[in-house]
Design a protein around this nucleic acid. Structure first.
Lengths: 191, 191
DNA sequence: ACATGATTCTAGCACTGCTAGATTTCCGGG
DNA sequence: CCCGGAAATCTAGCAGTGCTAGAATCATGT
């Protein structure tokens, strides 16, 4: 019978997810620099080599957290866009983006700041990545070249604001004003 | 006589700069992850502890590279702004910014991406940092609250474009279009 | 020329990511 | 029920990291 093998495979998948979740929790709680193989192995109550039976190396674990985060963010952006009246969709998506970055800084860092081999904006990019990108582009109406450029630009703005804010390189105080300005500028963008 | 002590101090300052330059060259050539205390000590032809007589730790060395880079970039932005006709000042500054980021990726990374304790946009921030920020704000005319918000926003956009471009998270191909769009949007910003 | 103090180095600690090889656990067939 | 082989897991270790205590060397003013 195959059930024994099936059960083992299911348990293996569960442990795979357990590792990702533990890494993410550790990173959110104490920063990525404290997520070492030993601490992570301790947390999931296995020895270090078990990590390497699931992932090629530590970077692959961070990448897995990144991909999970991208999926979550795409869903949040989607909800924000659908819940808002059309003329406020851009603002809603921007707000949701910045809220995610502020609420899950370690995940956001893995997604957009840390070195990674994960490929973006390519034909062969993983589906969650393409979904997230499509979510941003979608807030501007029909997908075409110009909207894509606009979306990449606004994404760049949001990302820049997120990281410069978090690192204290621009002050938190005027953030509302900046967001107002951003939305106003892009809303009035000439076709 | 004091000349002996003076000479020692001068040589010490030279070695201080030598360490910063060596760290920067190593980082630009092979990435920050390969800049270890041993490799850096080898390159400057001293033992590791000498590094610690100049800097508290490795992060302080990166911070020194960052501050040096900020000074350079501020100078470049200033030149770009002064060389361009007034109505093209914004575009010139943006282009200079992105060119610096592309030409000195490791320095740029130290300045704006890597973890750091360097404080920005504070009353007690180091002078080169305030100068660089003033350079960006200055491209928009008289310094006031609104221009400051606009400058921070455009800085965020530029930074977002720089890092997402470099990591391949947005494609290089449409970069000119994005920059056109960015400049057009901010040029038409309502007062 | 020499004692003193500054300077520099050697050697080592505790940690890191990662892995080879020993050990344990599991499972199906007799 | 038990046992042999295979799968899973762990122990122990390597080479490299940032950093530092204490020994060794060098320069300096008398």
């Amino acid at each position: 019978m195959v059930t024994a093998a099936e059960r083992r495979e299911r348990q293996r998948a569960e442990r795979h997810q357990l590792i990702i979740t533990a890494a993410r929790e550790l990173a959110e709680a104490e920063g990525w620099e404290t997520v070492t193989t030993r601490r992570l192995a301790d947390k999931v109550e296995y020895s270090q080599p078990v990590l390497y039976s699931h992932f090629a190396n530590m970077e692959a674990i961070r990448d897995a957290v990144a991909i999970e985060g991208i999926g979550e963010m795409a869903e949040l952006l989607r909800e924000a866009r659908l819940a808002a009246p059309e003329h406020e969709a851009v603002r809603a998506v921007c707000t949701a983006y910045l809220e995610f970055a502020a609420a899950h800084p370690a995940a956001y860092q893995a997604m957009f700041s840390l070195p990674t081999d994960v490929k973006w904006a390519r034909a062969d990019s993983p589906a969650p990545l393409r979904a997230a990108f499509h979510e941003i582009v979608g807030a501007f109406g029909p997908v075409n070249d110009r909207n894509a450029a606009l979306a990449e630009l606004i994404w760049g703005s949001l990302h820049g604001m997120a990281v410069l804010l978090r690192s204290g390189r621009i002050p938190q105080s005027a953030q509302e004003q900046r967001l107002d300005l951003l939305v106003a500028l892009f809303a009035d963008a000439p076709a």
